[in-house]
Computed example of a mutant assay.
Amino acid sequence: MKAAASFPSSVSTFKSEHGFSITVARLRGLLADKGMTIFVDIDQADAAAQVGMTLRPMRLIVFGNPKGGTPVMQANACAGLLLPLKALVWEDDARVTWLAIDDVTGALVDGYGLEASLVEPLAKAKALVQMAAARDPV
C-alpha cells in the first residue's frame, strides 16, 4: 500500500502473509465457513481490462448474513446503503497483497441512529478479514 493512501478511520487494512489468489481463496473460505453468503465477487482488474485499462489485481467481495443484516435494515431501510458488507483484496506495486474492510457499525450507530447492540454482530466481519491475511498457526 502506498504511504500516501488516504481512507476513513473506519477502514482497517491488513497485510496478507499470502499471495493474491491464496488470500482471495482464504477469505472466501472463511466467510463460507462462518455461514456468510457471498453475494458477488467483483474482479475489478478484469473490469478495467474490458475497457482497455490496467489495474493491479483487485477483488471486491460483497458478503453478509441475512440473519445479522436484516434486523438492521428493518430498523432503518437506508442502512441498506451500507449493507451487505464489503472486503477488498488487492496487490500493490511491490506485489504485496492487502485486505481492507470498512467497519460500518459506527456509521450505523452514529449516522443512522441504530442501537449498538443491533449492529454489533456486523463487527465480527473484521476479524474474518484479518484471519484471511494471517499466517496459519504452526
Rank of each mutant, 00 (worst) to 15 (best):
S9V: 13
H18V: 13
E115D: 14
L85M: 13
G80A: 06
F7P: 10
L83C: 07
G68P: 08
M131P: 07
P8I: 10
F14R: 01
L55T: 09
S16R: 00
R28A: 14
T37F: 05
G69D: 03
R28L: 14
G113Y: 03
D41I: 05
M73F: 06
R28P: 10
Q130V: 09
D46F: 15
P8W: 10
A4E: 12
T70P: 05
T54M: 12
V11L: 11
S117H: 09
K124Q: 14
I61V: 15
A45W: 06
P137L: 11
K126R: 11
V104P: 05
P121Q: 02
D41L: 07
Q74G: 04
A45K: 05
L128C: 06
V40H: 12
L82N: 13
D43F: 07
A32W: 09
A47F: 08
T105F: 03
Q74P: 09
L82K: 10
L128S: 03
V89Q: 00
I38F: 04
L88Q: 10
K15D: 05
P121E: 03
V62H: 07
V119W: 00
M131R: 15
A125H: 02
K2Q: 15
R59W: 08
K86G: 05
G68Y: 15
A75N: 04
A116D: 01
K2M: 13
D33W: 09
G80I: 13
L118G: 05
Q50C: 14
T23H: 03
V109H: 00
K67V: 13
V62S: 07
A47R: 09
A94C: 04
G35Y: 00
G64E: 01
G52N: 06
A45T: 06
L81I: 15
L82W: 09
T37H: 09
E17C: 11
Q130R: 11
G52L: 08
F20A: 05
F20I: 07
D136M: 13
L55F: 14
S6E: 12
E17W: 06
T54S: 15
A5V: 15
R135K: 15
V109Q: 01
F14L: 02
D41Q: 13
D33S: 14
